[in-house]
C-alpha cells in the first residue's frame, strides 16, 4: 500500500478494486471461458440458419429481446457486486444501468464471438450475421458484428473485459446524474486499475487508447438499437406491448 499510483490512489487500493471487479465479472457471466471454448466450433447447420431466416420478423425480434433481457439481468447483478456501486444514490444506480446495460452486454458479447469465422453464440450454437436476417435491421446487426470483431482484435484478457465493462457502466457521461462527483471518483479508480493491468499485459502502449476509442461506437450502437426498436414498434405495437419482456420495455421503450 506504500507505493502510490495516479491521483494518490494506493496501488493496494487499485489492486483491491481490480480484484473485486474481476470477481464480480466472473461470478455474473452467463458462460464461463471454458464453456465458451467448448462451444466455439459448434455452429448452426445450414438448415438451422434457414429456420431462423424463415421466422416471422416479430417472432425473431421477440426472441432477441428475451435473450438481451436475460443478459441484462446478469449485468445488473455485476453492477450490484462492484464495491461502491450500491453506495451511489438510487437515482444514479438506475440511470447508470438504464443507459449502460446494453453497452455492457455488447462488451460481454465479444467473449461469445468467434472472430475467425465471424459467428456469435445464439440459442446454444454459433452462427453468422445471416441468422438475424429476418429482424430486418441489417445495418444494426452488421455494426454489432463489426464491433465484436474489433474488440476481439484487441485480445483482451478476462480481467481487462471485466474492468472495461465496469468503466463503461460507471460513467459520468450519462445525463441527469445526481452525484456526478461520486460517480467520477469511482470511475477514475476503475480506469487507473484498467490502465495498470493493460500496461502489465500488453506490449502495445496504445492498447488502452484503442480500447477507449471503442466507447463512442458502443454508444452509437445503442442509439441505433433504440431507433430500430421504434421503427419495429410502429409496425408491430402489439408484439412489443404484449410479448416483449417487461424489463426490456422499461429500459428501452
Amino acid at each position: 500500500d506504500i507505493q502510490l499510483g495516479p491521483n494518490n490512489v494506493s496501488m493496494g487500493e487499485l489492486d483491491r478494486i481490480a480484484q473485486n471487479i474481476i470477481k464480480s465479472h466472473l461470478e455474473t457471466c452467463q458462460y464461463t471461458t471454458e464453456e465458451l471454448q467448448q462451444l466455439a466450433w459448434q455452429t448452426h447447420s445450414y438448415e438451422e440458419v434457414k429456420m431462423f431466416q424463415g421466422k416471422p420478423r416479430d417472432v425473431l425480434w421477440q426472441q432477441c429481446a428475451i435473450q438481451i433481457t436475460h443478459a441484462i439481468q446478469y449485468v445488473v447483478e455485476f453492477a450490484k457486486r462492484i464495491s461502491g456501486f450500491m453506495e451511489l444514490c438510487q437515482n444514479d444506480q438506475i440511470l447508470l444501468l438504464k443507459s449502460g446495460c446494453l453497452e455492457v452486454v455488447l462488451v460481454r458479447m465479444c467473449r461469445a464471438f468467434n472472430p475467425l469465422n465471424n459467428t456469435v453464440l445464439f440459442e446454444g450454437k454459433y452462427g453468422g450475421m445471416q441468422m438475424f436476417k429476418a429482424l430486418g435491421c441489417d445495418d444494426l446487426v452488421s455494426a454489432v458484428f463489426d464491433f465484436a470483431k474489433s474488440l476481439c482484435a484487441l485480445q483482451l484478457t478476462e480481467e481487462e473485459i471485466a474492468l472495461f465493462s465496469a468503466a463503461v457502466l460507471i460513467s459520468t457521461d450519462r445525463p441527469w446524474l445526481m452525484e456526478p462527483r461520486k460517480v467520477q471518483k469511482l470511475q477514475e479508480k476503475i480506469y487507473f486499475a484498467l490502465q495498470h493491468i493493460m500496461q502489465k499485459n500488453h506490449m502495445d502502449e496504445d492498447a488502452l487508447a484503442k480500447l477507449i476509442s471503442r466507447i463512442p461506437t458502443l454508444s452509437a450502437l445503442c442509439t441505433l438499437h433504440t431507433e430500430e426498436l421504434q421503427a419495429f414498434q410502429q409496425l408491430h405495437p402489439e408484439t412489443v406491448n404484449v410479448l416483449f419482456p417487461p424489463l426490456y420495455k422499461e429500459l428501452f421503450n
Binding site: 439481468q73 445488473v76 447483478e77 438506475i94 444501468l97 438504464k98 424489463l247 422499461e250
Partner: peptide
Amino acid sequence: LKEKHKILHQLLQNSTS
C-alpha cells in the same frame, strides 16, 4: 425515476444471489 423503472429498482433491491 424509481417509479418509471420499478423492475430495475426491484432487481437492485433484491439481495445478491
